[in-house]
Design a protein around this nucleic acid. Structure first.
Lengths: 372, 372
DNA sequence: TGGTGGTTCTGGATCGATCAAGAACAGTGC
DNA sequence: GCACTGTTCTTGATCGATCCAGAACCACCA
């Protein structure tokens, strides 16, 4: 048995060239650069390819030579099923997909970045650049990207010096939300936060945790809330903080119950996401607390469900889809360069950070404080 | 100026080997096969790599050599934003993602297969195999995959001889649905269908279109409905068919209005998807037609929203997530082989086709026919 | 002394394409 | 007849790794 190898060696471009008596370059050109050879010869090559069952150049070999992978990598903090459940994340993905389709690029999802420590999740993957979404500081997978030197754009967090970041004005948005409530006369407030650390903790806010926060968004939004409140003269003792491990309705409901059942219940709640706010509304319903009569609630994000809730949710609108689109465009057009207008209207630019503005959307979940 | 090339040539594994005075193989082993060299040398290599800023082997070069891409391709009929809007598709993606995460593989999305004719969408992409979802016959992108000889698993459609297909018992499910209605005494029925062709047509069913259908799912479900109805002696003239270009609530609503406003309105509607059925419920609400009092509605899929609708929807449950999981596992474990048990319970297997069973879920949207 | 076995490391071929430089040839204008 | 410009095609190097076969070395035992 002189069987050299089990697989009989694939039919390659070289084989096709030989069987036709032309050079490899010619065959390559027939597929990839039609203007470099006569139409007749090209047709002859393509015909022979069809006959031999050769379906065109191997993409990996081409990538190696050209250096382009034809795909964008998307690094998600949690698993993909989780991302699909979250309106914020899926809206962001829509924006990224918009840009990818414009450029005819694939989108390669690398999920579970918070959990996965294996660098091979990154090193094994062929992409032209990564978009990293909502990660805490010191995420191994992200650090792997950074050291590998592949172009990256971070969306939202972490804010790293020298790394392009697309985000929104979190502190400003938080200020708007808090300001709205104090303007309505609220003085006993609760804050329901996104996680400060990726350790799964849910419960009363703890100043030590807050000080050691590794999620920038929670940190920045909290800072915004607190700035507005202290400007309005609200003593910080009157503000309870409840931290949720994830942005979902169930944890928001838990937080809402906690804040409403405490000794001196709050008259208004600031939630760092709409999903959390929706959970707070559910808690209020359960406890027969009228919104907005007895309780005002402000969310953050303005997801589709915010306008449809009972009552509809006052919230801070951020351009989620545009954020995704801008991040992808920025990655594709200006790898390593400074941000600039992305054809998406006027965009505030500061160094490597591109923060979209946010706005307060007033709906039915907020009203003037009744009991003082 | 003796500047040979603009880019100063990347620092590669070979450079690291030379600067250390060891062979390339040794460096390669340090990264990829730790048991092939002494721990001391390995540490020395890794340390030098860190010092030089070398972040490990280039994934593309590795792929070329090893032949594995570390990612699965997912071919979607429409754009990704569209897929994310559709509970059926996103549930399928969840299942695929489950399998990918188990195997630590990336998921590369190739969207817009119906529209995109450019074969480069496929040829430019490095994956170990494709999952093609819900495509019509003669989709160029899919044919490109087939001729390229990359492993493929089709989910739902098209059913192609010799190509592994993961799907459900569509005709059986449709029979169950229709049977349920005739058992309840309904004799004047309407059918709201998924598209028969990818040409964007929405409107009354046309036998010519049906005969020339290129979407297998619509064809097979319709066949199932009709089989059950004719068995029950319902004259086909009493059954109006309305075709929708997409599976969404708005088109379902249009279809519902059409069927309810016709001269001899129907007493029951079979919808080929839950989203369409939900649209029919909306139409009934608008027209003040009571469901299930005056109209019974049966959907297909059992998406999450089916149980939550007003009234809750009787439907045919299919294991969407499992279907995605099974397709991915099949692709990974048995490329080119015949299907087999996938660790997901007993699964009916027939040649290259793996059809999961479906079941009727009876809820509040169906009741006995009142007016005869 | 020499044979055997086990580590540890190396050299060179190889994966399948693209690309730069140049050869061959035809056509054009003077 | 010559230089010049294009077009068309080819040669050989290159992208950056992995992998196979074997060299070198050490230890052990007969």
């Amino acid at each position: 048995m002189n069987q050299q190898s089990k697989a009989p060696r694939r039919f390659t471009l070289r084989d096709l060239a030989e069987s036709l008596g032309v050079s490899k370059t010619t065959v390559s050109n027939a597929f990839s650069r039609p203007d470099q050879l006569s139409p007749e010869l090209r047709e002859r090559v393509l015909e022979a390819a069809r006959a031999e069952g050769y379906a065109g150049p191997n993409p990996v070999a081409r990538m190696l030579r050209t250096g382009r992978a034809g795909a964008l990598g998307l690094i998600l903090p949690e698993s993909l099923p989780f991302a699909l459940d979250d309106p914020t994340t899926s809206e962001l993905i829509r924006g990224i997909a918009d840009a990818c389709e414009e450029r005819r690029l694939g989108l390669l999802v690398v999920p579970g970045a918070i959990r996965v420590r294996d660098p091979r999740a990154i090193t094994d993957v062929a992409v032209d650049g990564f978009i990293a979404y909502s990660l805490p500081w010191h995420t191994p997978v992200l650090e792997q990207v950074l050291v590998r030197g592949v172009p990256v754009v971070v969306v939202d967090e972490p804010r790293l010096p020298g790394v392009a970041t697309v985000s929104v004005d979190d502190p400003g948005g938080a200020r708007l939300a808090a300001r709205h409530l104090v303007d309505l006369g609220h003085r006993r407030l609760g804050i329901v936060t996104l996680p400060f650390k990726p350790d799964g903790y849910t419960g009363r806010g703890d100043e030590a945790r807050i000080a050691g926060a590794t999620f920038d968004v929670a940190r920045r939004r909290l800072a915004g809330y607190r700035a507005a409140l202290s400007e309005a003269g609200v003593e910080s003792g009157a503000v309870s903080v409840y931290e949720c491990a994830h942005s979902d309705e169930e944890l928001g409901r838990q937080a809402g119950r906690d804040l409403l059942e405490q000794a001196a219940p709050v008259t208004a709640i600031l939630a760092m996401s709409d999903r959390l706010a929706l959970g707070v509304l559910a808690a209020a319903r359960e406890l027969h607390v009228d919104v907005p009569g007895e309780l005002s609630v402000v969310g953050f994000d303005d997801i589709a469900g915010a306008a449809r809730s009972q009552p509809s949710l006052t919230t801070i609108r951020q351009p989620l889809r545009l954020k995704g689109y801008a991040a992808a465009r920025f990655l594709l057009d200006a790898p390593g360069a400074t941000p600039r207008d992305l054809g998406a209207g006027t965009v505030p630019v500061g160094g490597y950070e591109l923060d979209f503005p946010v706005e307060l959307v007033t709906r039915r979940s907020t009203a003037a404080a009744s009991r003082t």
